[in-house]
């Protein structure tokens, strides 16, 4: 018997180091800067309980005498309040780290839930076609025709009224995730559906059908992995969008409460004191939010280009 090839398969680690994706990452300035920035921002946010100088949720640790202090490089500042304090004496740096953590968690959770719903519905619609496809995609069209913010406002207003008063503060994050998810799943469903329609006619799917592989396994194990590339890009970019939507809702006062501020809540509160000269209360959250979203979007853009074979 003639042997057709001899070299054995490389390890997973070596496969990754040799991959086009890694090559394109090491050769893209913006991607590397964005990745480092994102790791620092998200890392510090999640390490907040250990590295933040103060626990802003703990009212007992707040000191009204230390309120409205400017950042450390200005006159009248005090250690350890590096970025100054707000009107309640909360350390801006600590509030910022905890706020970023809330923003990132809400963004991440809403992307995950949108993905779960969108991928499943898109696969079902694309694989079965016909009435299921029509029904699901028309529902998606209706959702897309309403602005995201409007859906989010509607959902959070309605759900908030349904929650008992003592649960409103705790449920705020869940309501935000629900609101963003409800408008976010459509784009994944559409992407996956389009790709599924292409894949389901391919011969490898036919080969699986010949073996009587159950439908759910054909959908999730054969077709789904082949639809994930554009979904990955969409998910990264909409992670940035979700953080922004959350910030918008919080800025409008229907998001996170002031007791558990997200970046959007901090900007809303700071905005009220901008003309009182307390500029640090609004500028720092704004800069943090911008850096976060820009780095996510830069990574998403890089990923889109790196995974697009036509751009190489």
């Amino acid at each position: 018997m003639t042997t057709q090839s001899t070299n054995s398969a490389p390890s997973r680690r070596k496969r990754f180091r040799d991959s086009d994706l890694w090559w394109s990452f090491t050769h893209s300035w913006s991607a590397r800067i964005a990745a480092v920035l994102l790791i620092v921002l998200i890392g510090s946010a999640f390490l907040a309980p250990w590295i933040a100088p103060q626990n802003p949720y703990d009212a007992a640790s707040l000191d009204m005498w230390k309120s409205e202090l400017p950042p450390i490089w200005q006159q009248g500042s005090e250690m350890p309040y590096l970025l100054g304090t707000d009107t309640q004496g909360r350390d801006m740096l600590s509030v910022l780290l905890y706020g970023t953590r809330i923003s990132v968690m809400i963004g991440f959770a809403s992307v995950i839930f949108s993905l779960l719903i969108g991928l499943t519905l898109g696969l079902v619609a694309g694989y079965f076609g016909g009435i299921a496809d029509n029904l699901l995609m028309r529902v998606g069209d209706v959702v897309l025709s309403i602005p995201t913010i409007l859906i989010a406002i509607l959902v959070s207003a309605v759900v908030r009224q349904m929650l008992p008063t003592n649960l409103r503060e705790i449920g705020a994050a869940a309501v935000l995730v629900l609101a963003i998810t409800l408008s976010g799943w459509v784009q994944y469903a559409r992407t996956v559906r389009a790709q599924t329609i292409v894949e389901r006619g391919k011969e490898y799917v036919m080969a699986a059908k010949l073996l009587n592989v159950p439908k759910h396994r054909i959908m999730f194990r054969h077709i789904l992995p082949n639809t994930l590339t554009p979904v990955l890009v969409a998910a990264t970019l909409s992670f940035g969008m979700a953080i922004l939507t959350e910030a918008t809702l919080s800025f409008l006062g229907i998001g996170m409460p002031p007791g558990q501020p997200s970046l959007g809540t901090l900007i809303r509160i700071g905005n009220q004191y901008l003309f009182s000269g307390l500029w640090w209360m609004v500028i720092f959250p704004v800069v943090q939010l911008s850096l976060l979203v820009i780095s996510v979007n830069l990574l998403g853009d890089w990923l889109r280009d790196a995974l697009n074979p036509k751009l190489r």
Partner: peptide, 14 residues
């Protein structure tokens, strides 16, 4: 069955 197109008949992710 053995299929015509060896590029489409094997799942590229497996």
């Amino acid at each position: 069955m053995i299929f015509q197109d060896p590029y489409a008949s094997l799942n590229p992710r497996w």
